[in-house]
Design a protein around this nucleic acid. Structure first.
Lengths: 207, 207
DNA sequence: GGCTGCACTAAGCGCTCGCTCACCGTCGAC
DNA sequence: GTCGACGGTGAGCGAGCGCTTAGTGCAGCC
């Protein structure tokens, strides 16, 4: 598979859809703070301070601290789902599509680690309605990966006994990258993506 | 591999080493609360309440809330390391030892999910010295798994290009079980352990 | 130039947090 | 029977939390 064929890992400048500028600065500051310390350990004063504003400024653009997390989680899940959909619906064999999906999904989790951390690990901090909305997006994420694996099984490319369990394991492997990856580590997001694509193809018996 | 040959997943009654009884009740309550809500979102009043005691009682047995987390993390990491060491040092081929290590490690993460969650996801809430101590234990965990994989490569059983990266991925896969596993789910810890052992053997090219 | 609308701030409210302290009941040693 | 040791409680301290409110400065419009 050539580099040109691969979908991107989502490394374009993010949060450009958030306006006005002050709201975006607050949201970016919140992503950094939540990723670093966790939602509950982050104070609204810390978020406002990182954005160069007073604590009260936060409440002009967001009703509550939780709304900030909700917006981050929603946009992040949309992006993650978009990456997987792009890979799943391109042309090519199931093997190529699965490799593309895993490598781009992993590149996003490594390259945009702060966002991914918040998206994947702060779900429980959301209230019931917001959580339900995000859980629905996660089910779509799961369905995209499961679809590729089912295609590969149907075409005879893959040898998988437990499709649901294997889908779960593949996603789990990719998501956990956000926990351990650091920019100071020995691997680039691209290298981890390539390694993981290879490991996942082995998991589904594609080679 | 027969069931009798496998090492246990650590499903014996835990925390028996914590005495006196009140200190153990507080610690068990803290594990539940930390796993459910996270360290920072858990109050000392909640912990004491779950243990059937007044908030002040906590400070008779532990200096701070953080000391509780430290003790939990230390004991949990010791147990996890013990499980891996037992599997790594039994007799058998690298394939058998890796399958045993993964299935018992996964069974522990699924069966003792509350403990594993705290152990794996609340590391950052510890202070610098406590964190350094735990990080050292994690390096030993990594070394045990890497050792088995190196043995398998040396004996020709495994086909692995990047031993460090594959070790990381195997451990990551197992650890993330603590994030998604629920007792209400369709799989038992034993089933997940068996599935994951199979997937990991595929990842290292053992079959 | 005066007015309006609005992004933003300074100050602070009510509350809950981790933790402390003065006190209490029980129980073994003598 | 007395007493000290000790595990435990009720009340509350100082601090910091999420969030609010009254007021300020400034850009755009007539």
């Amino acid at each position: 598979m050539s580099t040109a064929e691969e979908t991107t890992g989502g490394e374009v400048e993010p949060w450009e859809e958030v306006t006005p500028d002050a709201a975006r600065r607050l949201l970016v500051a919140a992503v950094e703070a939540f990723a670093e310390r966790g939602y509950h350990a982050t104070t609204t004063r810390d978020i406002a301070g990182r954005a160069g504003m007073s604590p009260a400024a936060l409440y002009i653009h967001y009703k509550t601290k939780e709304e900030l997390l909700h917006r981050i989680s929603r946009i992040g899940h949309d992006k993650a789902l978009d990456i997987l959909r792009t890979a799943a619906r391109r042309e090519g064999t199931a093997t190529e599509r699965l490799a593309d999906a895993v490598s781009s999904f992993v590149r996003w989790h490594a390259g945009r680690r702060t966002t991914a951390r918040v998206v994947q690990y702060e779900l429980d901090a959301l209230g019931p309605e917001a959580r339900a909305e995000i859980v629905a997006l996660r089910r779509q994420v799961d369905a995209e990966v499961r679809g590729i694996i089912e295609d590969g099984v149907a075409s005879g490319e893959f040898d998988v006994l437990d499709v649901h369990g294997t889908t779960l394991a593949v996603l789990s492997l990719c998501i956990d990258v956000a926990r351990w990856f650091t920019v100071n580590g020995p691997r680039t997001p691209e290298e981890v993506g390539a390694l993981y694509a290879d490991l996942v193809l082995r998991m589904v018996g594609a080679q």
